[in-house]
Amino acid sequence: MRLNLDERGRFEHATLPHLDAAYNLARWLTRDDHAAEDVVQEAYFRAAKFFAGFRGGDGRTWLLAVVRRAAYDWLAKRRAWAAASFDEAVHDRGDDASNPESLVIRKADQQLLRQALEELSPEFREVTVLRELEGLSYQQIAAVVGVPVGTVMSRLSRARKQLRQRLAPCPGREE
């Protein structure tokens, strides 16, 4: 089976406007420019293959779910998973030890912020990217990641807690 010309037009219309979103997610998950391009290309191939199952609606969410899967496949293939994933128990220090007042993020700290986000485990990184950078709702994130909405909520709050913990302990920083 193949896409006929009609379907190809529909496919382009449904997916090409979301190329930035696709690349952004792939880039954050793989943390590598070239890998992100490969993953996006692979995802578009897969999306074309499954396009008959796309019943209209939220093309971005649909595409992002395919991109995410391709990115995880890439991570697994490169055995990067073990290196990239953190033991939650070790890195989540439980109660919120950071003092919110000390968490002042200035322009100069943007590099720090980028690094903190890259160091989150993939499942925390993806919900943060989808929420904060892509602006998806909990329900849309649940659809992309394939978990219940409640899981999205708890992952997101833990991810933010970890980000604050990573950013907070810089003593002597003034307001």
Partner: peptide, 8 residues
């Protein structure tokens, strides 16, 4: 392309 589409 086209066909199953269950996953997506």
């Amino acid at each position: 392309a086209a066909g199953i589409g269950l996953v997506a």
